[in-house]
Structure formats: structure tokens, C-alpha cells
Design a protein around this nucleic acid. Sequence first.
DNA 1: CGCAGGGTTTACAGCGCTAGAAATCTGCTC
DNA 2: GAGCAGATTTCTAGCGCTGTAAACCCTGCG
Lengths: 337, 337
Amino acid sequence: MRPRLADVAARAGVSIKTVSNVINDFPHISTQTREKVTAAIEELGYRPNLSARNLAKGRTGVIVLGVPRLDMPYFASLAMQLITAAEAASWWVQIRQTRGERAAELELLAETRQSRIDGMVLSPLRLRESDLAERSGLPLVMLGERRFAAVDHVGIDNAAAAASAVQHLLETGRRRIAVVGGPGRTDRRVVGARATLRAHGLDLPAALHLPVRGVTGRHGEEAMKAFLGSGHPMPEAVFCVTDWLAMGVIRALRLHGFAVPDDVAVMGFDDIPYDLAALPTLSTIAPDREEIARLAVASLRRQEGATAPEVQHTVVGHRLVPRESTAATGPVPTTRR
Amino acid sequence: MRPRLADVAARAGVSIKTVSNVINDFPHISTQTREKVTAAIEELGYRPNLSARNLAKGRTGVIVLGVPRLDMPYFASLAMQLITAAEAASWWVQIRQTRGERAAELELLAETRQSRIDGMVLSPLRLRESDLAERSGLPLVMLGERRFAAVDHVGIDNAAAAASAVQHLLETGRRRIAVVGGPGRTDRRVVGARATLRAHGLDLPAALHLPVRGVTGRHGEEAMKAFLGSGHPMPEAVFCVTDWLAMGVIRALRLHGFAVPDDVAVMGFDDIPYDLAALPTLSTIAPDREEIARLAVASLRRQEGATAPEVQHTVVGHRLVPRESTAATGPVPTTRR
DNA sequence: CGCAGGGTTTACAGCGCTAGAAATCTGCTC
DNA sequence: GAGCAGATTTCTAGCGCTGTAAACCCTGCG
């Protein structure tokens, strides 16, 4: 049988509660006692029983992660990170998919009221500020582009990240730059891109802003195809607000005979964990996902403790990852035949 | 406060244990009582507290999934499926990475003995039959190519799947076929491919069998580069034992000026959830991962119940997914310039 | 030298559920 | 109509842990 608190207590010659106190880092424990207990724990290889702990503490040990879709590598990867981060807080993560539908997102928000979970991490796409009335006091933290005034948020500075992406394109000598993404100017990434162009005395003409109805490869391919059919002069580079879009854009470009990056450079965003055997490998912006996951869990714990925790919006870092798709010279030699 | 068993009991006018009996499907419950209880559960929206249940039942509610690496999309996707399947059995999945190292795999096997988990799903790469002595009575099920006599196994028929892949290449008119994968003939996929070639009066000459030390894009790229440098006449098609290898192979081919599938068709294996915006999209074999996950959990539950369960090796289905990389005519038009 | 006052430790009552054993209720036989 | 077997339900004791409150033990001061 695996050792229990009582076994540790007996071995250390103290009471059960003292062992519990040591484990939970309660104040007022003499160094001597602490050492005795720690030694006993070590010798017995004791590990607390989470079921019992959660039961006694009245928590369920479960948090929910709400994402649009799990087969989007960005969210799959985020989920993995969150699972790891949550484990440290003895939480396990129940993953729910919203398919980006408003109804599903509202439903999740409503579930906040049944006390079946200890907290929720939500990556909303269609939620509005006013929807948050649905919310109960349950610990909640939002991820993604949108920030809500009344709820904790963890994310990167999308505008700044997009700016550095465009900056990179400019630095590699491209001036005429198209932007793929966002059906509105609410899109921080588009905003950041546009601002950077403007700061360099350039513009984002309507023809070079390719709106999309989604962010997958298919959407990117369609948007670029539409552009290619429009007869507008080609851009020297394309900034896509997601890697998926970029993959589709590259496909469309190549199907039309354009070489990437030789004819057109393409930049993505997200650093989805695709195989680097892609051709060309994709230059992108890598949000610090591990940090996002860690801080999301930290936010939940903070809220769990306090009765009326103050709202915190946290900005985590991102990295520019230049790869082949924006290289000055492409890796693909002239084709035979 | 969320409803407890006692609340349901009060509402239905029966004892707590009766409600518990209904929930756990115990025999000897009158239809009338069952209906009363079910109604009460419904009205109150009762859901059992898993912590309490697990505590009382003496299980931990945790199973371990041991995979080589989680950033391999195949395993990420498998993990997701397993998490879903395990949820139905009130288990949550703790994911452990072995990096394909024998030591790490043995360590996991050893953990089987501390009763900290209810079961283990293992996808071993380097384990030997004899290592299983390490194993305790804990429910264990293996995934992957290797079958062990003494342990439950769930997987596809790799040889048959590889056979159908090669068959597909033959049917699209390719005769000279190379195989990338396996540093030994233990590899069922290589065996299946070779057998199919032989059955068609063809051979797998040593020059066309490209062994690899791993199964990622990098390994595929290196193997194909080495071949291209060898001066051997080109094959018309390449069958790779994983999609990742295939991505690398395609990259190497294209960097050398070969078009896929026009000059060389490439076939993968696994159907990793890559973006279909790849160019060309990858023809592959898709194992029924959902079924694998479901059956793995079922195996664990079966073993949990019995004291000396008989060993079951289960074969699940796979599908041939033809895409662009093996099409008769390629999607890439002649390049401009 | 006694006692206040703090730091430390212990006792004990649950958290919500399940597993026996015990109690009760049927319907049936004689 | 009593007696009995089997079906059905209730009683009771934990599962291993934490929170509260009370008990303990030491200083240091008067």
C-alpha cells in the first residue's frame, strides 16, 4: 500500500496534522520538526493523495480550457503547455472546443456558475464585453487578442509583434507589403502592421489588405487566389496573421508559379509546431506559449485565493523567428526541365 | 452549493446508498425506485464528485500515457484522443515523454509498481520482451509496432497498411519504388512494403532501401540527400514509414530540382494533422486513432476489473488517404522564369 | 519563581462517496 | 395466517486529507 500521512507521521514521531502543515508550508514550524518530517517523507516516498486533498479542500481539481479547435496546432500546443502548468497546481485540464461559435462560448461562460470546476481558461473569438454578465465569481482568465476590462488576461502584445514582423520584411528589402487577415480593424495584428508601414512612409492600400473569413490554410489559399486573379500588381512580401494562413498563401503563390521567398516573401504568426521539413520553412512570430500557460494558471490560483481579486492584464513576450520564407535568397534552385 | 448524494436522496425519498446503487448500476433495484432517483438526479442536475468517488474506491483517477515526444504531431493527436476517451472512464491522463530512450521507458515501467496511478498506456520504442519482468499487476496496454506476448496491445496491422500504401503507388503506375525507414527488418512497415513489391515480381534492392536513425523531417531529408548524392538511378516513388520522414524527403527532392509527384511520388504514413495547405498535400495511411484511444482505455478498464485478465491483442483499422503527393499528375505547373 | 504571551503542535470533525453487513419488505408456501 | 427465502433498501464505517480550535511548551518579564 502506498504510504499515507499517518505513516509519515508515525515515522517522524509527530501528529498527522504537523506533517500536513509541513507539506502545505504553514508558518510556525520549527526547523527541527520540519527536517524530521521532510526526512520521513523522503524515506517513505510519500506523495499526497490528490483525491483526498481535493475533497477536503472542497475543490474539484479540474479547470476547463476553452479553445476554438484542438486540431489547430497552435491550440494543441497551447493545451499541452497548459496541462503541464496546471499539473503543478494539482489541476487537470478538461479541454472544450467552441469551434469559434458564440453560442458555445456563452455556454462555457454559463458553466462557470455550476461549481463543477475550479476555474476556466478561455480563448474567445466572438465574446462581447457585455456577455461577461453571465459570469460568476469563478476564477477566469482570458487568452487571445481581445482584452476584457473585468477579466484577467494573458497574452502577447499583438500590435507590437505584428510591427516587428513587418519591420523584418522591410529590413530584408521588401517595400510593397500585403497583409492577410482580419475582417475588421479590431484585429490588433493588422493594426500593428499598418502602423509600422505608415511609420516608414508606406501605406496599406485596400488592394493589398486581404481580408479572410477564417484563419486556416484554406482561407489563406482562397484569399491569395482571389488577389492573384484581380490583376493588381504583386507585392514583394505578404504578412499573414497566422501561420496557417501563410501556408495557404504560399501554396496559392506556388501554384501560380511564384517562388517563395524569391518572388514573394511570406511571413506567418504563431510559430505552430510544424515540421521544419516544410519548404520553405516559415518565418514567424513565436509567442511565449509556455509563459502564457504558466501565467494563466498563476492567475487562476491568485483568484482562487482572494475574494475580490483585482483584475490583471499581463503581457508576455514574443520572438521573431526568421526562417526561409523571408530569406533574402530562396533555398529553391531553378527547377530542372 | 452543488448538489450532493444526500440532496438527491432526500428529493427522491430514499437513502443515500440507494442513489449510489442506481448511479453505479447495481442489481436489485426496483424500476420504480430507479425512476424516482433518476428523476431527482435530473432535476437537481446532480453530478458525482470525482474526488470523493476516487477516494472511496481507492483509485487515483490518473492514468499515464508514455510517448516518445509530444511535439510529434502523431503523438499530440493521439494524446488528445486518449484524453477524451479516458474522460469517459473518469480518468485523467498524465502525459510523460520518453524521448525514445530505453532508460526512460524502463523508468515508466518501474513506476507501475508504486500505486500512484490506475493504469498506463505506453508507446515503447526500445523496450524488450524481457523488460516486462519489471512490470507489476497494474493495468497496462501497449501501442505501436511492437507486440509483447504478456501485455495487452492495440494497434493497426502495420504490414498490411504498408502493403496497401505500396499497392497504391503501384496502381498509380510507379514500379521503381524506394522505401525510407527502419534500421532493421523488425520494422513491420518495411516488411509489408517489401512483401508487396515481391508479390508483384519486384524487388527492394539495397540501394533503394534508405535506412534512417530517426523518423523526423531532418532524418528524411538527410537520407534522401545521401541517396541523391550516391548516383543511383532515381526511383519513381518513395514510401516513407512516417509522414515526417516524407516531408523531409520531399524537401530534399525539391531542393535537388525534382518535382513531386511529377518526377517522384512520395507516400507517408500516420496522417499527422498537418495543414492541408502544404504543397503537395501528403498521401498517407491514416490509422484510426480514435479507435486506438478508445480501445486502450477499454483495455485498462477490463484489466482494472479482473484479477488475472487474459492478454488481448487488438487490431484496429486504417485508411489509405490519397492526396497530391502521389497523384498521377502534379498540381504544380511549370515554374515561370 | 510564577505567569503571561507567543510560537508550535495536536485532537477532532468533516469533505462526498462507496462497500459491506444489517434491516426491512416483498411474495409465496404450507 | 405464520414462516421463510429472496429482493430491496438502509446503516455505518471508513477512504486520506485539511481547517478550526484547543492544548502544549517554551521564553522573558515582573
